[in-house]
Lab assay of single mutants.
Amino acid sequence: SDEEKKVRDQAKRLGVNTEQLLKWARRQGDEDLVRIVERLLRS
């Protein structure tokens, strides 16, 4: 999905993997991002 591509691009920009991005999203309190990243991790 578009959202998932955006998440992957953001992880690349930050230089982190998906698990690290999830931690980062939780720290930001970004519920939408957390949900998308969790979906990516499960897929």
Results as ranks from 00 to 15, higher is better:
25 A>L: 14
32 D>Y: 13
33 L>E: 00
31 E>V: 11
25 A>R: 01
16 V>K: 05
35 R>M: 04
1 S>D: 11
36 I>H: 03
17 N>G: 05
38 E>Y: 05
21 L>N: 00
19 E>L: 13
42 R>S: 08
10 Q>L: 15
20 Q>N: 05
3 E>A: 13
38 E>I: 13
41 L>I: 08
6 K>N: 05
37 V>E: 00
41 L>V: 03
3 E>S: 12
14 L>R: 03
25 A>T: 01
8 R>Q: 06
29 G>N: 05
38 E>A: 04
30 D>L: 15
26 R>D: 02
22 L>F: 02
10 Q>V: 14
24 W>P: 01
10 Q>G: 05
37 V>A: 02
28 Q>Y: 14
14 L>K: 04
36 I>E: 02
10 Q>C: 15
3 E>W: 14
15 G>V: 08
27 R>H: 10
15 G>A: 05
21 L>F: 05
16 V>W: 15
4 E>R: 10
13 R>L: 10
15 G>C: 15
31 E>Q: 10
32 D>W: 14
12 K>G: 03
37 V>F: 06
25 A>D: 00
19 E>Q: 10
34 V>Q: 02
14 L>M: 07
33 L>A: 01
21 L>T: 00
38 E>F: 05
1 S>V: 09
6 K>L: 12
38 E>L: 14
28 Q>V: 10
40 L>H: 02
5 K>V: 06
37 V>R: 00
34 V>R: 02
4 E>M: 12
2 D>E: 11
43 S>H: 11
30 D>A: 14
29 G>Y: 13
36 I>T: 03
16 V>N: 06
2 D>G: 08
15 G>E: 03
26 R>N: 02
3 E>R: 13
41 L>D: 00
34 V>Y: 05
7 V>P: 04
30 D>S: 07
31 E>R: 09
9 D>E: 11
29 G>F: 14
28 Q>H: 13
19 E>C: 15
4 E>N: 08
42 R>V: 05
35 R>N: 04
14 L>I: 04
8 R>V: 08
6 K>E: 05
36 I>R: 05
2 D>H: 11
39 R>A: 10
40 L>S: 01
38 E>S: 04
9 D>T: 08
28 Q>T: 12
24 W>N: 01
43 S>D: 07
35 R>F: 05
34 V>L: 07
32 D>M: 13
5 K>Q: 08
8 R>N: 05
5 K>S: 07
2 D>S: 09
14 L>E: 02
30 D>N: 12
41 L>P: 00
11 A>V: 10
23 K>T: 05
26 R>G: 02
29 G>I: 14
12 K>A: 07
32 D>E: 11
21 L>D: 00
42 R>G: 05
32 D>I: 14
24 W>G: 01
8 R>H: 06
25 A>I: 12
37 V>K: 00
28 Q>P: 01
16 V>S: 04
24 W>F: 02
32 D>H: 11
30 D>F: 15
32 D>L: 14
4 E>D: 06
13 R>P: 03
23 K>L: 14
17 N>A: 09
5 K>R: 08
38 E>P: 00
18 T>H: 12
20 Q>D: 08
40 L>N: 00
9 D>M: 12
8 R>K: 05
39 R>Q: 10
1 S>Y: 10
18 T>R: 11
7 V>N: 04
12 K>R: 10
3 E>N: 12
23 K>A: 14
23 K>N: 12
40 L>D: 00
16 V>D: 02
40 L>C: 11
5 K>F: 07
19 E>K: 12
35 R>I: 04
19 E>P: 03
25 A>F: 13
25 A>V: 07
29 G>H: 05
14 L>P: 03
4 E>F: 13
22 L>P: 03
40 L>I: 09
28 Q>R: 07
7 V>T: 04
34 V>D: 01
14 L>C: 15
38 E>Q: 07
33 L>P: 00
12 K>F: 08
3 E>L: 14
22 L>M: 03
23 K>C: 15
13 R>G: 03
3 E>Y: 12
40 L>F: 12
22 L>S: 00
8 R>M: 11
7 V>I: 10
14 L>G: 02
20 Q>S: 05
10 Q>E: 09
37 V>N: 00
22 L>W: 05
24 W>D: 01
7 V>K: 06
31 E>T: 10
34 V>F: 06
10 Q>S: 05
43 S>E: 10
39 R>C: 15
18 T>N: 05
34 V>G: 01
40 L>A: 02
43 S>P: 07
13 R>I: 08
22 L>D: 01
12 K>Y: 07
33 L>M: 03
43 S>M: 14
38 E>D: 02
1 S>E: 10
6 K>G: 04
27 R>E: 15
8 R>I: 11
2 D>M: 11
29 G>M: 11
42 R>A: 08
39 R>T: 04
23 K>R: 13
42 R>E: 04
22 L>A: 01
27 R>W: 13
3 E>T: 10
13 R>V: 06
18 T>I: 15
34 V>K: 02
4 E>K: 08
29 G>P: 02
13 R>W: 10
31 E>I: 12
5 K>N: 06
28 Q>A: 07
23 K>I: 10
43 S>A: 11
13 R>S: 04
33 L>D: 00
40 L>T: 01
40 L>W: 12
26 R>A: 03
39 R>I: 06
36 I>P: 00
4 E>C: 15
31 E>G: 05
43 S>I: 13
22 L>T: 00
6 K>H: 07
33 L>T: 01
6 K>R: 11
31 E>S: 11
32 D>C: 15
31 E>Y: 13
16 V>M: 15
6 K>A: 07
14 L>H: 04
18 T>V: 15
3 E>P: 11
16 V>F: 15
22 L>C: 13
42 R>T: 03
12 K>N: 06
23 K>G: 03
26 R>K: 11
41 L>M: 05
29 G>A: 06
5 K>E: 07
26 R>V: 06
32 D>G: 06
10 Q>F: 14
43 S>L: 13
25 A>H: 01
25 A>P: 01
24 W>Y: 03
19 E>W: 14
15 G>K: 10
12 K>H: 06
18 T>Q: 06
24 W>L: 04
24 W>Q: 01
43 S>G: 08
14 L>A: 04
1 S>M: 09
25 A>S: 01
38 E>W: 07
20 Q>M: 08
40 L>Y: 12
27 R>T: 13
25 A>W: 12
18 T>F: 15
15 G>P: 03
38 E>N: 03
29 G>V: 13
8 R>E: 07
29 G>W: 13
29 G>K: 07
39 R>F: 10
27 R>N: 14
12 K>S: 06
22 L>Q: 01
5 K>G: 05
36 I>G: 01
36 I>D: 01
41 L>T: 01
17 N>R: 07
8 R>A: 10
39 R>V: 04
12 K>M: 09
42 R>P: 01
17 N>W: 15
2 D>T: 09
10 Q>Y: 14
4 E>W: 14
39 R>P: 00
19 E>H: 12
41 L>A: 02
26 R>E: 10
43 S>F: 13
19 E>N: 08
14 L>T: 03
19 E>Y: 14
17 N>P: 06
29 G>R: 06
7 V>F: 09
32 D>S: 09
6 K>P: 03
29 G>S: 04
20 Q>A: 12
14 L>V: 03
42 R>H: 04
35 R>D: 02
7 V>Y: 05
27 R>F: 11
20 Q>V: 07
23 K>W: 14
18 T>P: 12
37 V>T: 01
34 V>W: 06
13 R>K: 08
15 G>Q: 07
19 E>V: 11
16 V>H: 09
27 R>L: 14
17 N>F: 14
26 R>F: 07
37 V>P: 00
9 D>W: 10
4 E>S: 08
19 E>M: 12
1 S>A: 08
11 A>D: 03
10 Q>N: 05
43 S>V: 12
5 K>D: 06
14 L>S: 03
2 D>R: 10
28 Q>S: 10
19 E>I: 12
42 R>F: 10
25 A>M: 09
18 T>M: 15
23 K>Q: 13
29 G>D: 02
15 G>N: 06
27 R>Y: 08
10 Q>A: 13
37 V>S: 00
41 L>R: 02
19 E>R: 12
33 L>R: 00
18 T>W: 15
18 T>K: 10
23 K>D: 15
43 S>Q: 12
19 E>F: 12
25 A>G: 00
39 R>K: 07
1 S>N: 09
4 E>V: 09
28 Q>D: 02
9 D>H: 07
15 G>L: 09
21 L>S: 00
39 R>L: 08
23 K>S: 11
9 D>P: 06
6 K>V: 08
19 E>G: 06
12 K>D: 04
24 W>C: 14
4 E>H: 10
17 N>Q: 04
35 R>K: 09
30 D>V: 14
15 G>Y: 10
26 R>W: 06
15 G>S: 08
11 A>N: 04
10 Q>T: 12
14 L>N: 02
1 S>I: 09
1 S>H: 09
40 L>M: 10
32 D>Q: 10
30 D>M: 14
2 D>P: 11
21 L>Q: 00
28 Q>I: 14
